[in-house]
Structures are given as C-alpha cells and as structure tokens.
Design a protein around this nucleic acid. Structure first.
Lengths: 241, 241
DNA sequence: CAGTGGTCTAGACCACCTC
DNA sequence: AGGTGGTCTAGACCACTGA
C-alpha cells in the first residue's frame, strides 16, 4: 500500500471521544475526569492508550494531570492559566497587581472584518467591549473586544465590572465558552485620540498593537480583540522553544 | 518518605546522556542518530525508555523524528527551522522572498548590559553586527546583534555577506554554536535616526522592537539581538496554545 | 491505607522508507 | 526484504495524595 490517508491511531480516536465529552459539558472546567483505569474500561482499550491520549491533551493545555490526585479539565480559573494569555512583564521586578476597568459594553452589528474573523454573517448582532487594564494603578493596556451576541447574550457593563478573576474565566463560568488557544498578530502603531485618552498618554506615542483571535473547541473563533499596549516599563514576553 | 527531591526517572537520565553526545559533537546537526534499538543496547535500558527520552527531546526541537528513516539532530539548515525564529508574516498573501544585507561587523568591548546578558566580563571582546533584512526588496527589519568574540573569533562582514542560509545556520556550521531557544521581549518604540535611515522611513515612526537573547545547550546565552521591525504591511505572529 | 498518575519492561504488530 | 519509527497491549512496580 503506497498511502493510507485515513489511518487514525486508536489513541487519537480516544482523544476525540474525550474531546466530545469536554465539548458536551459532561466534564466541565475544573472537574476531575475519570481515572485512567476507568477510562480504559469505558472505552475498551488498554491503559497505555488512554495515557497517550491524555498526554497529548495535557500538552495542549486541555487537561491538567496531578500526580496522586487525578486528571482535571483545564480552567481559566486556574491562576496559572491567566498568564498564559497575558504575556506582559515589567522591565524591573515583578508585575505589580492589576485591575480591570471596563469602560463600555455596547451592542452593534458585525461589519465585514468582524464577520469574516468570527465566522458570522455581516450585520449579525455583536457585543463591543472596551476596557483598560491598569498595573500598579497606571493604565497600560486598552482593549477593544468583539464578541458574537449569540454566545454572550446578556453580557453587560455591570457583569464585566463584577468580573472576579479574568475575562476568560467569566466567559467560561457564565457562558460555557472556553477559550483554548489564540492567534496573535503584533505590530507597532501610533496612539490615536481614543487610545491616548484611555491610556493617559500623548497622541502619537508608539503603542504595541496585539490583535488576537481566540478559539474554542473545534477551532471555532469566538473572540476578536485589539489590545493597545503602552510599553513604557513593560514588555510582551515570548519564548521561542 | 515525605519527599525525594533527587528522584530522576531513567528516561531523563538517558535524555542527559543523549544531550551530552549532542553537546560533545558526537552527533552533529543534520546527522542521523542511532536507532532506538541500538540506543537501548548502548544504554542498557528498554526501547520504551529510549523512546520516551527521544519523544521529549523531539518536543523541544532538539531532535527530529522521521518515520521509516530514523531520528536526526535538528539543524538550522532545515528550512522549517528558519521560520521558528523569524515570526514575520505579511498582512496580505505570502511573505515575499527575503534578502539579508549586512551593514557592518565591528569589534568592541562588552558594556555592562551586554556583559550581564551574555554572562561575560565587562570589557570582554565582542562582535557587533548590524544588518537589514529586506522583503520583496523593501527593508523591514534592522538588527543589532551582539556576540562574544570568543565563540565567533574570525567573524567578518565578508563572511556574513557570503552567508547562504540563515545567520543561525552560519553559526551552527562555521562555529559549532547551535541556538536551541530564545527569550524575546517585545515593545513599541519610535524610530531614531539610525533606524529611520536603515529602514528608509521617517524618524519617529512607530517600530516593533524585538529584543532577543538566544541560548545554546545548557542554557548558555550566546547572542543578544535588538531587532527593529517596520510593521507596515507585516506583523509578528504568535500562537498561544 | 487505597487510589491516582508516573515509570519501566517485553513483546507483537503496523506504517513508512529505502534498497 | 529489512530497517526505521509508531502503535498497542499487559503487567509490575514507584511516587504522590488524602483520608
């Protein structure tokens, strides 16, 4: 046989079954999932095969293994997960405590860009959130966030202001939408009027623009975000491994 | 027993042995390493343990597995490796063909910053390379690169101009220094005179500053680089997985 | 102590590549 | 055909957690 394009190893099929249980909500973020031996009985494969499936999903940050305890569904409530998506550090010392200041949460209709990026119809209802993130009391990041209203129907400014952990934690707990990965495009721009006012800097100052598309299960794009970072004293860190 | 801080699984010890053979040059970039069964005989462990060690090293981009062929030492001559360290994309379409234009290759003494970052003495001899990277004939990236002269003793502008593949490929082939990972700090700055002239833009334009420290085996820092990216039509892409 | 994930082994078979 | 890595299994034992 020259090629067998349909070859799909058993552990990958198991991975698919586990993924389905995650999507369906059988196991929710933070939950413990059945032990490896239970799963091997349930799916009728050896424990080693279950192991390989879980290994892969743990490497993708979908599951978290804890020796002696069990395997858990990854959650944005986990403080470690927070800094996986916010890659900001301070030039000197530790990152000071931060504080989110939601500015507005409006409803709008999807324009061509948002529709294309989120995979929805032009004119479909969306939410537009604007907020500032402060570190040590100083505004550092100004975010514009675009969301399909279908997924976050009752989102309001008050809800955002009551957000305890992170935004993704809120999306996960309140709307059952779990962000699992994101693509980012970074560039440098000059601060316009709105950015300058929000970040309390002068117009024209250089800003780091971070455009992010976040995806949930099944690679469905669910958030488009444009973050303007004032990188005086701060930087975006990235590791190339 | 409450804790056993010294516990080191067998496959990790094997990993250490393989790493030593990589560092010592027994297997050089691009080389094929012995098969799993050969290694299991050599180290006196089962094939599964060898497998786990290699799996981990392949995940770290130290080795590359090719089914049916063998396992190879990762190399910057591999075209895939090139874009692992250059995370530039075009707003529209494919990245146009690029061209490196080395501007100068001078010798200097390490200042406090360079000495601290590269882990060498203040005043130790270093090389300073400046170059421009063009895409489709347009200058997009201006790099300032700092290297310890001890590791790259005879580096000259002519050698840089003759560089066929990438800079890291040159370092690997000519000096036996293989870059395996890098830490980057991204921020936004205004173009100064030198940047403006090198990138053929106006002074004051916003630029993406990418400061990179590259490490070779044993987490030894061997390169400090400040790259100024003109992100008109281009962006730095990053995936958060 | 029992239960979890983590390691290690041995062996069988499959998919892929080259000769 | 013969070698490589890739998958799958079964079983033993180790390290860690919590009751």
């Amino acid at each position: 046989m020259v090629y067998s394009p349909a070859f799909n190893p058993l552990y990958r099929q198991i991975r698919g079954l586990i993924l389905r249980s995650l999507e369906s909500g059988e196991w929710r973020p933070g939950d413990i999932i059945p032990s490896e031996s239970e799963l091997s009985l349930r799916f009728g494969v050896s424990q080693g095969t279950i192991r390989k499936a879980i290994d892969e999903m743990a490497a993708e940050n979908l599951l978290v293994r804890r020796q002696g305890k069990g395997t858990f569904v990854a959650s944005h409530n986990d403080p470690n997960a927070f800094f996986r998506f916010l890659r900001l550090s301070a030039d000197e010392g530790e990152l000071p405590p931060h504080e989110n200041a939601p500015l507005e949460c409006g409803r709008a209709k999807a324009g061509a860009d948002v529709a294309r990026i989120l995979g929805i119809e032009v004119g479909a209802p969306i939410h537009v959130v604007r907020r500032v993130m402060k570190f040590g009391g100083v505004p550092i990041v100004f975010d514009e966030i675009y969301l399909s209203s279908v997924l976050f129907p009752d989102l309001t400014l008050d809800i955002l202001k009551g957000e305890v952990h992170s935004l993704y934690s809120l999306f996960e707990s309140r709307y059952g939408v779990r962000m699992i990965r994101a693509d980012e495009r970074l560039s440098a721009v000059s601060a316009d009027k709105l950015c300058a006012r929000s970040l309390e800097i002068e117009e024209g100052m250089p800003l780091l623009l971070v455009e992010r598309v976040s995806y949930t299960y099944g690679d469905r794009p669910v958030e488009w975000r444009r973050g303007f970072y004032s990188t005086r004293g701060y930087y975006y860190h990235n590791e190339i491994g």
